[in-house]
């Protein structure tokens, strides 16, 4: 393997990893606050991709406008899902909300099948993203650079909101103790809605970039990236946003590099993440940066 090809793999890993990271942030924020694995998150990701191409092809919106509109629409879907399917179950056993989430996931997936048909579609890519550039002997698609950079900007934006604004303070408070936060006057339901909105917006952005990078749309496209991103969140320590970012990147690199160095294992590509998940859960269930309270006897 030449150094150029290795660099190429590293770049691919970075791209894939930052896409996972963007999705993982949504999982980790929701889990941190509600202790809920939001199964529907992978469908939110899928909807983001569909919406933007709908906007472009059906409504002939210019790209930037279609992007913004799609992200906003998906954020709204995320908030709606919480309002309808999770909020009534706040006081129910945790698994009830999880089953509801699985239901929502299948619902959205099949609504997408009804609306968009099950067959995969080609994605139309704007031209300026198509022409490869040669940088130091490495052939680079503009997208390969565009994805990590935009992801980084989005993550920084999110970190700013979580760590430097008042609603962000609310989020952190709720994730520590939801009841006490409510007593202290934190508007719990609006903050949770905001969390869903932000998480969904990031997932939508990820979905859009995913569709540009691997140019195909289909209703089940979110399932595998969704699982992997969730695993990334667990690996990084569920509830921790930096953890989700690190987990996503690690998983992205691992996946690309294992396949690059052991081409025989390519068929098992989708199983790596699950093996990693099981190992992490058994060895260090709190992940890299996470902490969970122990159960009291």
């Amino acid at each position: 393997m030449t150094i150029e090809i290795f660099l190429q793999h590293l770049l691919n890993g970075l791209t894939l990893g930052s896409l996972y990271a963007l999705i993982a942030i949504g999982y980790t924020m929701v889990y941190g606050i509600l202790r809920l694995i939001n199964f529907a998150h992978s469908e939110i990701f899928m909807l983001g991709a569909y919406f933007v191409f709908w906007g472009v092809t059906l409504f002939h919106l210019p790209w930037p406008l279609a992007l913004v509109a799609a992200v906003a629409a998906v954020a709204l879907v995320g908030v709606l899902v919480d309002r309808v399917a999770y909020r009534p179950l706040r006081d129910a056993p945790r698994i009830s909300a999880l089953i509801s989430a699985i239901g929502v996931s299948f619902f959205l997936q099949n609504v997408a099948i009804v609306l968009f048909k099950a067959i995969p579609r080609e994605v139309y890519r704007p031209e300026w993203l198509e022409n490869p550039m040669i940088m130091g002997g490495v052939r680079v698609l503009p997208l390969t650079l565009f994805v990590p950079v935009l992801s980084l900007l989005l993550m920084l934006g999110l970190m700013y909101i979580v760590y430097h604004t008042k609603p962000g303070l609310g989020m952190r408070a709720i994730s520590k103790d939801i009841e006490t936060s409510a007593l202290m006057g934190v508007p719990v339901n609006s903050i949770i809605a905001l969390t869903f909105g932000l998480g969904s917006a990031l997932a939508a952005a990820s979905g859009i970039m995913w569709a540009l990078r691997y140019p195909q749309l289909q209703p089940i496209m979110g399932v595998i990236p969704g699982f992997k991103a969730f695993i990334a969140a667990v690996f990084g320590g569920i509830g921790s946003i930096p953890g989700a970012v690190i987990g996503g990147l690690v998983l992205g690199f691992l996946e690309i590099l294992i396949v690059a160095f052991f081409p025989d294992l390519a068929g098992y590509r989708d199983a790596f993440a699950f093996v990693l998940l099981i190992v992490v859960l058994l060895v260090k269930p709190t992940g890299l940066l996470g902490a969970r309270p122990e159960e009291k006897v």
């Binding site: 399917a85 179950l89 509801s100 239901g103 619902f107 099949n110 997408a112 099948i113 009804v114």
Partner: peptide, 20 residues
């Protein structure tokens, strides 16, 4: 296509929400 599972996933959500 897909309508069957739309109906059923809605049914499941309804059961969890209204008759756990």
């Amino acid at each position: 296509p897909g309508m069957r599972m739309v109906v059923f996933s809605l049914l499941l959500i309804a059961v969890i929400l209204f008759r756990r």
